[in-house]
Amino acid sequence: MVKGWPKYIIAFLPVLAIIAVFYFYPLYVTLERSMLRGEEFIGLERYVNFLSDATFLHAFTTSLRISLISTVVSIILGVLIALALRGTFAGKRVSLFLFQMNISIPHIAMATMVVFLLGSVGIVSSIAYQMGWISNWTDFPKMIHDVSPFGIVVAYSLKFIPFIGMAVLAVLQAFPVEYEQQSRSLGVGRLRTFFHVTLPAIVPAIATSSMIVFAFSFGCYEVPSILLHDVTVPTLIYNSFYDFYDPEGRPTGYAAAIMLTVLMTSIAAVYLYLTSRGRRA
């Protein structure tokens, strides 16, 4: 790679200008408005108020719970499927294609599929009726449009299992099988071999991909508004922005937006630190 400052560094100007005007400036406006009451500067007052605001804390824990469950489920199943896809076997290309397919499906389309799957008149409910487990669609437990995060976790997992799985598989394909064979021939059990030989090799891939998954599921507005009958941080921001009756509505929304930005960018900072360390190694 050529070292030294490139001649055409000026080519970055349009890109940086766009990011400055349409990313940083809006964030600055958001920050400014979150700290003003009318004309009066109130500093971090709204941020401090969040700590005792029941609605915000509820939204925060809801978002956190959904993201954590989706991430953990996606890691476990993603790694398991990646292990199954490792090596060569008949039908690998078909399996790989099917496995990757959900990554490219937009999250709104994914949420739509979950409506048809888990809705009260969805296919699972029909199967339950046919099996005689329920006598009417009203008996079917509410999985979407409900406070229970089940449907939304399914939607996220369907999209993120392959995302984490493919990242892990990329490492596994390059990881020599001999290490594990050695460990097995020395009499170490399957599980211990996995935890002591295989897992350390794939931890960086899991860490980086699951961080993206966590951040995305925490900050996504559309999927919770389709599948959840509860408030998450993104829906809280949206609702408070359109709360025309409360003069504190919009500024509070702005403050929540800044909180979410700080949270997401710190996750991103950890992610970038981890990947840059991995690259140097």
Partner: peptide
Amino acid sequence: RDFKGKTFLRIIILLPALTPGICVVFGMIP
């Protein structure tokens, strides 16, 4: 190319993708 400040530049360019749209959109309106 490899130059001083490249990582910083990369991070600045990456930031919009790492921030949820909802955090920025209401600041974009004004």
